[in-house]
Nucleic acid binder design. Sequence first.
DNA 1: GCCACCAGTGCAAACGCTTCCAGTTTTGGG
DNA 2: CCCAAAACTGGAAGCGTTTGCACTGGTGGC
Lengths: 345, 345
Amino acid sequence: MSGREGTTTHASIVDVAARAGVSVATVSRALRDHPHVANATRQRVQDAATALHYVADANASRLASGRSNTIGLVAPILTSWYTTEVIAGVEEVLQEAELDLLISTRRGAPDNHPVFGPNSSFRQRVDGMILVDVFFDTERSRDLVRTSTPAVVLGERLDQVASLSIDNHLGAEMATRHLLDLGHRRIGMIGGLALPGITSNVPESRTAGYESALAAARIRRDRALQVDGHFTIEGGRRAARQLLLGSQPPTAIFCMSDEMAFGVLQAARELGLSVPGDLSVIGFDDHTAAEAFGLSTIRQPVKEMGRIAARLMTDILGGHAAEAHHHPLGIALIARSSTAQLSVR
Amino acid sequence: MSGREGTTTHASIVDVAARAGVSVATVSRALRDHPHVANATRQRVQDAATALHYVADANASRLASGRSNTIGLVAPILTSWYTTEVIAGVEEVLQEAELDLLISTRRGAPDNHPVFGPNSSFRQRVDGMILVDVFFDTERSRDLVRTSTPAVVLGERLDQVASLSIDNHLGAEMATRHLLDLGHRRIGMIGGLALPGITSNVPESRTAGYESALAAARIRRDRALQVDGHFTIEGGRRAARQLLLGSQPPTAIFCMSDEMAFGVLQAARELGLSVPGDLSVIGFDDHTAAEAFGLSTIRQPVKEMGRIAARLMTDILGGHAAEAHHHPLGIALIARSSTAQLSVR
DNA sequence: GCCACCAGTGCAAACGCTTCCAGTTTTGGG
DNA sequence: CCCAAAACTGGAAGCGTTTGCACTGGTGGC
């Protein structure tokens, strides 16, 4: 085929076959540890491959086999601490398993969402996908997921698919109860939607947990105490100002993420309020920086969740796992110095 | 070829061709906006494609064309704020350009580094790569980069390759000078290597900048004041303790990243030191959380750097750009409440 | 009115691998 | 020893695109 060799073009399977004195079929088998290849032959092929620095072309191999050795990860935002940690955990496992990671944020509307849609190019190029905080509203979405590429869903519980999540209701309840135990009665909540158009049932569950803890303490819900913080520092800051500058400011605030809690801390400082003296603050996540700033929080094992999700995926691809199974994960209350007994005035 | 249709298998280009009444070649051209396709034909093909939910198979297309429409990103750590921001910026642009993003952290030793090595499978599956904080020690590495896949290097200045960086020397100098201007004379520095085995010239440049500012103020260098903080919060905390618990503690500390500065803030609190009363702290980055904690810092436009890197990449791939060109970026001193005039005792 | 040229289209050869099917050689149980 | 079965290997047909080349018919310059 090719006249001159060794210039720019890489060695192909044909070259290896020639060098090892076998057919390309045998090279293909030998290199992928197939059975029915004599040890001596396998060795010879491997030597030849090494000598030629041969690496099978991924695209050709995918085309021929249908497998892409790539798993896709979809998340609404890439810059949140949560997403980052998940990705790091996933990458760790995938690297071990020699799989590639393709990343995508959901693009705009759900109709041309990379995950759904009748024939998404994203799905087409991955063997499986890990869905982080992707919201499933309609039955349609669920069906789409079920009938296509294997998926593991991280962040909420789904019945037909392998999923992985913490008990968000419980977590919010624990946080709120912690505040109640410290004597607080007027407790604000900062949560909300991640981005316009992006929803998830996580905020809903946490809101429910917060409300159920209040209900158990016979405190009636006050809608004015629930503010959207967009899951960002700045959003948390704004929400806190709204809360604290109101007519009946809370003495404690539960935030659905540590990042929003950081914003609350900032707002408190700006307003001259001391934490926890004038205001108790509790977050959710146990962000890497939470300890540094003494933030009380609900710890969830985010990086580990990424690892588990990836392992689940490799298991599914290897045919080793029951696909549709929900994996609950442990959480814990970490009390630090941002929460304290309500001071009597 | 295939007997029954429409069950599970996706529509292929042949199906589209049949439906539109043209050859596959025409379909291929029409769908990719090639010239020499009649408008009427193109329209007919597009309609057929839409009707069949046709999406060209990426692998086949890559194999045939040699282009992968994927760009790879390599970074030493995925969880640092810096990397995250870069990725977000890159993703933003790539999405626009309809390119995929393949992510990899460098695996272990430089010899089986995804970027280098005689025939890396990583390089093989991307059209170009963005290298974030990858260190180039030997000439060999540089050559490898030059002679292969187009690359844009982010984080340091390289001559033979498109690169993008801030003036790290200047940044460190600005930070240190800020501290000097406030009257500090004994100024610690926390920097160091990102991870064992991973080096970059960034810490070196910043160290040099720090030292040159001191030299300009006629302060002689004290090696005991330079500590490695591993670019993490915890590392910063440890380094700060070492510095502050020493025999002659500094009155100010310059950190090479805001994350390390957060650790310093934590250490100060733990040791009962007030910031900026007893200790001034300045970081580097302008981390999203820096403002929330009143951290003075050197701002660099990290997300924007990601965007620019990605645009540079798309330009190169489109043949629009001079490949080897260095793009310097602006930085700024952001003085907040973690730095203050040295208090006389 | 002729001819060179070009827009528009199709044919078929890659692209580099995987894998079905057959063919050949060993192996081992009876 | 014989024969069936197993182990090993090769040939060749795809996998679904892209693209060079060839072909056709129409157009405009002279």
